[in-house]
Amino acid sequence: MRRVEATDALPVQLVGDQPTSENRTGDWRSQRPVIDAARCTGCLICWKYCPEACVTRTDKVPVILMDYCKGCAICAAECPRDCVAMQPEEAA
């Protein structure tokens, strides 16, 4: 057992020297969403529901930023056309 004494040497706050955009949560992913561009209508339901805000609005078919996508599959569950497939990372 060790006593943790009260001293001014203890940290008040932990300050990360990088912005949180450097926290690339994409490497948590075990499955990646793949959009079937032929069937996608561009309704942007996936953009609206993505909790990581990593679906970006493009011309028609959205692009998912894989640096941040955690593979949660909410987009696949919400897609009204069922055109988002979750594929194992190793297969991709």
Partner: peptide, 24 residues
């Protein structure tokens, strides 16, 4: 000057941060 505050903190560091709150 980007920094990040309040990120995920492991038990050992969390314990010291709480000790510091009590100290202050």
């Amino acid at each position: 000057r980007p920094i990040s505050l309040g990120g995920l903190t492991m038990p050992k560091e969390y314990f010291r941060l709480r000790r510091r709150i009590d100290h202050d």
